[in-house]
């Protein structure tokens, strides 16, 4: 950003637009020559603060459901439906994590998932690579239509 300011002084029109767009017009007008790098820095810092704020809100929104799930996993049955909602469970229990191994066939579930996932990855990659090669390199009639049909079926 600062390099751009220094270099682009000769062609006047584009640089004239630049402070207007970034909202730093007032500052650069009040300090015509000497204050220029400083005002850029201030705009940059303000921009950083705003960017960080917006991104933080987004991050919180994205992480909140996961945190809520984790919080719920430490609650008793009453705590789950408590009003007002508790973020830190009042009867704080790890019991649910102990029940994972006893209440249901979790290990065989993981095993099934792994078998399906590995097979799909290996067989899928191989066949997809072969099909992709055919679509990329070979000539055949109605190639585009075939490709679109394959895509819309996925």
């Amino acid at each position: 950003m600062s390099a751009q300011h220094v270099i682009t002084t000769p062609p006047l029109e584009p640089t004239q637009e630049l402070p207007d767009g970034s909202g730093g017009a007032g500052k650069s007008a009040s300090r015509p020559t000497g204050g220029r790098p400083r005002s850029t820095k201030e705009t940059l810092r303000l921009g950083n603060v705003i960017t960080t704020l917006v991104l933080s809100v987004g991050a919180i929104v994205m992480i909140a459901p996961l945190a809520w799930t984790f919080s719920t996993s430490l609650k008793t049955k009453d705590g789950v439906f408590a009003l007002p909602p508790q973020w830190i469970p009042d009867p704080f229990v790890w019991e649910n994590y102990a029940r994972i191994w006893t209440a249901g066939p979790l290990l065989s579930g993981i095993q099934n998932s792994l078998i399906v996932a590995c097979s799909v990855t290996i067989v899928g990659s191989l066949t997809s690579a072969l099909a992709a090669f055919a679509f990329a390199k070979m000539r055949m009639p109605f190639k585009n239509v075939l490709f679109l049909g394959l895509l819309s079926g996925s």
Binding site: A3, Q4, T8, L18
Partner: peptide, 28 residues
């Protein structure tokens, strides 16, 4: 930047066209 493009112009005329294939893939 050497040609005097602002940040917005760079975004509009470089970034968006260069990620266009990904945009298309994601939309489809």
């Amino acid at each position: 930047a050497l040609d005097g493009a602002s940040a917005w112009q760079q975004f509009r005329h470089i970034t968006i066209p260069m990620v266009r294939p990904v945009t298309f893939f994601l939309i489809v």
